[in-house]
Design a protein around this nucleic acid. Sequence first.
RNA 1: GCCCGUGUGGUGGAAUGGUAGACACGAACGACUCAAAAUCGUUUGCUUAACGGCAUGCCAGUUCGAGUCUGGCCACGGGUACCA
Length: 875
Amino acid sequence: MNDAVTANRSENTRPEPARPEPARYDFAQAEPRWQSAWNTQGCFRAPDVPDGSKPKYYVLEMFPYPSGKIHMGHVRNYTLGDVVARYKRARGHQVMHPMGWDAFGLPAENAARERGVHPAKWTYQNIATMRAELQRMGLSLEWEREFATCDPSYYGQQQKLFLEFMKAGLAERKESWVNWDPVDNTVLANEQVIDGRGWRSGALVEKKKLSQWFLSITKFAPELLAGLDTLDRWPERVRLMQANWIGRSEGARVRFDLETPVDGLTQVEVFTTRPDTLFGMSFLAVAAEHPLAAAAAARNPRIAEFITEVRSLGTSEAAIEQAEKRGIDTGIRVKHPFNGQTYPVWIANFVLMEYGTGAIFGCPSGDQRDLDFARKYDLPVPPVVLPPGADPASFAIGDTAFTDDGTLFNSDFLDGKGTADGKRAAIDALEAQGAGQGVVNWRLRDWGVSRQRYWGCPIPVIHCDDCGAVPVPQDQLPVVLPEDVDFSKPGNPLDNHPTWKHVACPGCGKPARRETDTFDTFVDSSWYFARFTSPKAETPVVPAAANAWLPVDQYIGGIEHAILHLLYSRFFTRGLASMGHLKTPEPFAGLFTQGMVQHASYKSQDGRWLAPDEVEPTADGGAVETATGLSVTISRNDKMSKSKRNTIDPGSIIDRYGADTARWFILSDNPPDRDMEWTEAGASGAARFSQRLYRTTAGAVGSLPVPGTMPAEGVGRDLRRVTHRTIAAVTEALETFAFNVAVARIHEFANAIEAAGAEDGAARREALETMARLVGPMMPHLAEEMWSLLRPDEKTLVAQLAWPESDASLAAADSVTLAVQVLGKLRSTLAVPIGTDEATVFALAEADENVQRAIAGRPIRKRIHVPGRIVNFVV
RNA sequence: GCCCGUGUGGUGGAAUGGUAGACACGAACGACUCAAAAUCGUUUGCUUAACGGCAUGCCAGUUCGAGUCUGGCCACGGGUACCA
């Protein structure tokens, strides 16, 4: 409001200049106009089932969490997707490009606790704000398909799917550990555990065992691994990360008899990938959650204390693995299946109960972690693998374990065998004496989907003392969240609700309790892409629509989702396929992962974070705080975050420069898979370029021949060559997500059009019309404005035009510049007509003055000629 | 810790194993202007008087030729199963 008053006053006091302003593109007026033109024409509507007249193309960006306002990461993500969507439409595809909201999650509950806003109200308000912001960006989205995962019409269908997973044997109840805050009486997410303490209460975190729902993703482990080979339009690194995460490994399970049974336990089983090194054993280590650890703790308070300490690390693998490696001897001993000797059983904080059997045998000479542990606790380090060429008499392990392949020694019947033979022989021996067997182990664990939270999809199950966990009957779905919930009490508001959970058992009618856990929000995002194909259906998906549109042809989102979201979606899709909802086993045929958006952050001398508009740049590249004039510390390349106050609000950028400029800068700055830095200078540079394109077009239209005039043979040859080369180059760049290169080629094109001048009107018209169409996917509003200047009598929209074709004969060059090297160093260049024969090229190159000086009379031993590229003389 | 990436001028970056720095931002100077904004032009990796030399995180290697391929380091980023 204050801003508007100031603006009016300054307009009144400063009169308009007398001479006319040069033509200036008024984005504020033009952008809404073109957006409404696209909507009126229905440019972005896709049929429920494509009619087959055009190939289908499903473009999808990862849907946003409605956190409040859109941020630059969203602008980048949705701009990238929009370029693809618009480009594919121009290439003749039937494109579906939907948008929705990943609307359940923790921040809404945090807002409820901190500010007393109901999560639903907070979420739907955020959605309204963010939808408006996305619409201002001019994205070619089909808003008719929009939904939020917190809509009962969505999560009710998800509940149906869960019941089908149960029926198919793909959901089960198991016990698992959670982070427990004993002061707030609440389960903590890993990110809410800071240095082993609850983020709000500061209490030391405990681990607590809860009975929870799991989806059986491990049943699909072999398929999920093998399926990666079919994803040839996924980044290699994402496939690698997923393969490592699934973690197939071949090895053995080995059973060790306890020397003396403890609490009825007589054996402990370990998993190892190196059964060949069993003779290098020094100790056996179990996880703190292992039954043997519990048995040992029951007799020794020091062990119990150690286990408590280990539990205070919480459940995050990063925290556990980075903690100092520690252990405690239980006093229990086990017998070696091969040599009959006994070894101590330790409890170690780096052994994970979730992996393998929760127990390992320690071979310090062949495993670095075991070696560090053995050195720390002074355990023996018997070497058993001899590196190639080493002397068995003198070989000893220092501080580095030998983990490569070698020859076994000190290993009884395995002596002399290589690593692979040794593994096989050890497994044969284990199987022969019934002490173990060869197995394939997977790192992947089942997917725990229970969350002790309110703002999520209720798990549609009723617990009955007599009937157990009973599915909610179909006719009682959806199980809707109660609205009257109390966030002032600690714990799960659903569980605290006075009446909601009390229901009759659908099986026997006796009083029973609703499940008060809700689903992990990754469940919501594991099938939304399928729901978009039939967003209003009374079934989760309509097979005809899903099978016609899926898989997603191009999925775009952050690299941070490389494993969890993408793997869960792949699993869920396989589940849906096995239950007949759809056919494709893989949800995303093409994947592009974008980098983050960063911005410089500023810190004052007294340590306060300053927002970008609170500082001013100085001549030396530094900055000062505007209010105080004191210099500030600048840190470049910081992830945009509220805590560092370095976020740039896309809304204010669009107000200032327009949507096209924001889109153009974000595309031009760097390759989209890298992290980018938002800079003021870059944004204003992009704004200048968009004005320049408009000016060039507006300035030329008066002198152009009528539309459709073909350039005469040979006229405007140079400009036409640039035009057709640019079409080819931009097309290639868009196909490969090299959007920053497309922008560079368009800059060069603009330079060439301006340099060409006005004389060849038809070639100039061709160039300008091509320009409007090439920038169409990137700056769609400006493209329409240019097109309407160039074709004032037509009603066609760039959004409806076909992509320009490059004429190879017009794009061809007739001469080429070769680099001439002597001993690989550049000494001269040589311009020759295309197709000059090799002998002539060598003769011309050798005659060159600089080349002669470099050769310095030495005899030429070898002549290398790569046509069109280089000549190299080896002397 | 483990898995996966990234590293090129003042800045963002370009470059099928073949002229490193395209294109842009910034800066400096100039034109236009009473002045400014806008716009246009010139210069701009380091070094050298010049010839030339040195330059793609660091150290090796393969090759006629390496930013690109291989090995070993360093720094930074993503993930690490309850942030989304």
